[in-house]
Write a protein that binds this DNA or RNA. Structure first.
Lengths: 204, 204
DNA sequence: ACAGCCATGTAACTTGTTACATGATTTT
DNA sequence: AAAATCATGTAACAAGTTACATGGCTGT
C-alpha cells in the first residue's frame, strides 16, 4: 500500500500529471526504489476507481493533470496519522526461507545461510560506499536519499545480525536439533470418506 | 515468493495433503505468520499449473496427497542455493511512508514518526514478553519459533533505530530543510499537443 | 537522420490474502 | 444437539510489477 498512498500524498500537495508524479517520487526516495512508469498510470486509474482522485485538465503541453478528491485527502490524513501495523502480512522473506530451510531434514541450511550472508554483506558494502546517495541536486534531495539509504542499511544490518544469530544457534545444537520431519499420525479427526488408492507414506 | 516456495520445500520431503502442509508450515514458523488455509489450496493449484507438483492419491480418509515433480525439486534446490536478492521490490513500507511524509511541505512528519515509534515499541514489548514463543510442544518447535521471533525482533529494533535516526535528522535541520515542493518548470521536452483547458498551477 | 528522453496508456500476470460454501467427525 | 475442529475447495480481489505500443520532442 505504500506506493499507492505515497502517490496520493504527493497529489495532496497539488495536481500533477503522471510522469511528474514519478519524478516527485524519485526525488524523494532516490535510486534505491525506482518506480516503473507504467505503474503510475495503473495506480492512478485504481485511485480514480476508488474515488480518491479525479482526472483533471490537460494543459497546452498535453499533460494530463490529476486532482485529489476530499475523500482522497482524508485517506492521506488517515494514512499519515496512523502507524503501519505489524500484521500477519509483515513477512520477512529471508527469515521465512531460512527458518523453513533450517527445520527441514536433509537440507543444508548452513550453505543457505552462508550464501545469504555473502549477498547481504555485498549489499551492505554497496550501501556504505555512498554510491547511491551522490549525484543528487539540492540539499534536501541529498538528505532524503541518505535517509532512504540509512533505512536500507539498518534493515540489512538487522538481517546480517539475525543470520549470524541463526548460524550460532545451529552451531550450538547437535546435528539436527531443529530438524522437523513431516508429522505422521495426523488424521485423528475429520473427514473419513471415499474409497481410494493406497495411503502415501510420509517419505523416507 | 516465500510462502509458495516454502510449501514446495516441505513437499520436497514427501507427499502431503493440503491441511497437513499448513500444519507443517505452522510448526516451523509459529503464530507470527499464520497462514490462511485457503491459500494452501490456491498455491497448490498454481504450483500444479507451473509443473512443480502433481495431484496424487487420495487415501482412505479422503486426504488428497500432493507430490513434488522433478522440476519442483530442482526449483527447491535452486531456491535454497541462491540468496534472496535485494531488488527494487524490497520496499520498506515504513521507510517509504515516512520519507515521503518528511519531504512533503505542510505534513507533520514528527507526529507520524512518533505514532510509528509508539507502535513499534508496543510491538517490541510484545515480542520481548516471550508470549509468542511459549505454548509449543517439542524442543525443535520451540527453537524454530524463537528464531522466527528473533527475526521479527531484530527487524523491529532496526526500525526503531531508524525512526530515532530520522527524528534526530529532522531535529538537526531547520524547520523544513527536507521539504520538497512540487517541482515546477518541468515540461522542457516532450509532447506538446492538443488544445485544452487552463494549466493547473502547482498548488498553494 | 537518428538516438534518446518525455509522456501516456494498455494488457497481462504474480503472489498474497480473504470470504465463503460445504460437509464430516469428534468432543462436550 | 451443538460447538469446535478437520478438510477441501472456489471466487474474487489487492497491490505490485513488467512488457509493450505509440508518438512527439530535443540534441547530436
Amino acid at each position: 500500500m505504500s506506493v499507492r498512498l505515497s502517490l496520493l500524498a504527493i497529489l495532496d500537495q497539488g495536481p500533477c500529471y503522471g510522469y511528474q508524479l514519478r519524478h516527485e517520487f524519485d526525488r524523494r526516495t532516490g535510486s534505491i526504489w525506482p518506480l516503473n512508469v507504467g505503474q503510475i498510470y495503473n495506480t492512478l486509474e485504481r485511485l480514480e476507481r476508488d474515488g480518491f482522485v479525479r482526472r483533471g485538465e490537460t494543459d497546452a503541453h498535453g499533460h494530463v493533470y490529476w486532482r485529489i478528491t476530499d475523500t482522497g485527502s482524508a485517506e492521506v490524513a488517515r494514512w499519515l496519522s496512523s502507524p503501519v501495523r505489524r500484521t500477519t502480512a509483515s513477512r520477512d522473506e529471508v527469515a521465512i526461507k531460512l527458518t523453513i530451510a533450517a527445520t527441514l531434514p536433509g537440507v543444508d541450511a548452513d550453505a543457505a545461510i552462508s550464501a545469504q550472508l555473502v549477498a547481504i554483506r555485498e549489499h551492505l558494502a554497496l550501501l556504505r560506499s555512498d554510491a547511491p546517495v551522490t549525484a543528487s541536486h539540492g540539499e534536501a534531495e541529498l538528505l532524503a536519499r541518505s535517509l532512504v539509504r540509512d533505512a536500507a542499511l539498518f534493515d540489512a544490518e538487522a538481517e546480517e545480525r539475525w543470520l549470524e544469530h541463526l548460524r550460532r544457534r545451529l552451531a550450538e545444537h547437535p546435528a539436527h536439533a531443529l530438524a522437523l520431519g513431516l508429522a505422521t499420525d495426523r488424521p485423528k479427526r475429520g473427514r473419513p470418506a471415499k474409497p481410494a488408492a493406497a495411503p502415501a507414506p510420509a517419505v523416507a
